[in-house]
Design a protein around this nucleic acid. Structure first.
Length: 380
RNA sequence: GUGAGUGUAGCUCAGCUGGCAGAGCACUGGGUUGUGGCCUCAGUGGUCGUGGGUUCAAGUCCCAUCACUCACC
């Protein structure tokens, strides 16, 4: 994997770059749709690509439990298995063990957890995480980390950071797939000193990219941005920076300014299935009664498949009747919205008008979003 | 025609030996950040079939009546 910086913004840490992998290249800042179990829920790979997806994320935890990584290896790897020919990034499973499994016992050796599917007991170590990701054959693998609970105190997180660092080292040592890039994950909760320690430790080891983990676990938006800013200070400019699990369009715009290159989030796909659609004017809840006889598309100037063929009234009907097509059409639109947002950001960066883009981005919002609206303009 | 049963929110039904009319679903509006097509919070909505009676107090007890269901003629 290679990371080429094409243009550095003059007024912020934002930049446009290109990441080259064996399965093709893509420009950053980029948004990666989440394909947890080897599928972007509701759509085919072709539909995801048409909606603008260039790299997708899949999960070690889920694919290990079902159908099993060795099976996927046997069938030619994840790209072939799921018919996605573009780049794939795999999460290591640290977060899923934290958020999904009932029981989690962490030791220096690794983490013992119970499957959320059948309750069976499993053990995940850094070496195991690398073995699984090797079997999957992703283009970018992540180190196994411990995602500490948001309410954990300084002492706990200090230990967690040290453990995550040891695990990162072991992931690096245990990696024997040289076609696969490996990103280290910075932890440290909301403590600046721990974020610094974690970032410095990883940078010293040297990874192909660095991820900021442990966020979007319930913290305030201002806190999140502070942590991102602090962490970013200690990461090298010549490597891609990946903010894990974040977030809303607003989070992305702010984080790009802080120097983040890669994002993933379930929001566009999950919210699509829950009837929430993203538009330049803000969030649109398709089940709302006001759309029952609305013949206009979700967004007037949107060029996605959904907007060019279907009305809000029809989409509302599909959603209320739980037609499977609702999930698919809504997902296509939201993926397209996110892809378009990223294209807009990159274009603005190239033309040196990111601040204008940011201002317009907030100015266009006419409904919902009060809490993350105008006041955050000041921080841009 | 006779006997039995049932009538309570838009739907399906709880409401004990009388004590401020409830739930689920539906509907309306929120929430959802390294994914369980969920989940969650809040809200609108009822002359308790109708008319009498008993009682301080009736969805609840008594009488009449109407509608529906089942069984038997």
């Amino acid at each position: 994997m290679e990371f080429l910086i094409q243009k550095q913004d003059t007024a912020s840490r934002a930049r446009v770059g290109e990441i080259v992998t064996d399965h093709g290249s893509f420009e950053t800042p980029v948004f990666m749709p989440v394909g947890t179990a080897g599928a972007i829920k509701g759509v085919t790979p072709d539909e995801a690509r048409d909606a603008g997806a260039e790299i997708i994320l899949a999960n070690t935890y889920h694919l290990y439990l079902r159908p099993g990584h060795e099976l996927i290896r046997k069938l030619g790897g994840l790209h072939r298995f799921m018919n996605w020919s573009g780049p794939i990034l795999t999460d290591s499973g640290g977060f899923q063990v934290y958020s999904l499994s009932k029981l989690r016992t962490i030791s220096e050796e690794g983490v013992t957890f119970q499957s959320h599917i059948d309750g069976s007991t499993h053990f995940l170590s850094p070496e195991k995480a690398m073995e699984i990701q090797d079997a999957l054959g992703s283009d970018i693998a992540m180190t196994l980390d411990e995602c500490a609970p948001a309410e954990a105190d300084h002492d706990y997180i200090l230990k967690s950071v040290k453990l995550t660092e040891q695990w990162a080292q072991r992931c690096r040592a245990g990696k024997n797939n040289n076609k696969q890039a490996l990103f280290g994950i910075v932890q440290g909760g909301t403590y600046p000193d721990l974020r610094e320690m974690s970032a410095k430790g990883l940078v010293e080891m040297g990874f192909d990219g660095y991820a900021i983990g442990g966020l979007s676990v319930g913290e305030e938006r201002a806190t999140r941005e502070q942590v991102i800013g602090v962490t970013r200070e200690f990461l090298p400019d010549e490597k891609p920076v990946y903010l894990m699990g974040v977030g809303t369009p607003e989070d992305i715009v702010e984080s790009v300014n802080l120097g983040v290159d890669m994002f993933d989030c379930v929001l566009p796909t999950r919210n699509a299935r829950n009837g929430m659609l993203f538009t330049k004017q803000g969030r649109l809840v398709i089940k709302n009664a006001q759309y029952s006889d609305d013949s206009s598309p979700i967004e007037n100037d949107c060029t996605c498949y959904t907007c060019s063929h279907y009305s809000r009234a029809y989409l509302r009907h599909l959603f209320l009747t739980k037609e499977l097509l609702a999930y698919r059409l809504n997902t296509i639109h939201n993926l397209h919205y996110y892809a378009k947002l990223m294209t807009g950001i990159r274009t603005a960066l190239r033309e040196d008008r990111l601040a204008d883009f940011s201002r317009d981005f907030y100015a266009q919002k006419i409904h919902n979003d009060e809490k993350e609206g105008a006041e955050s303009l000041q921080t841009v």
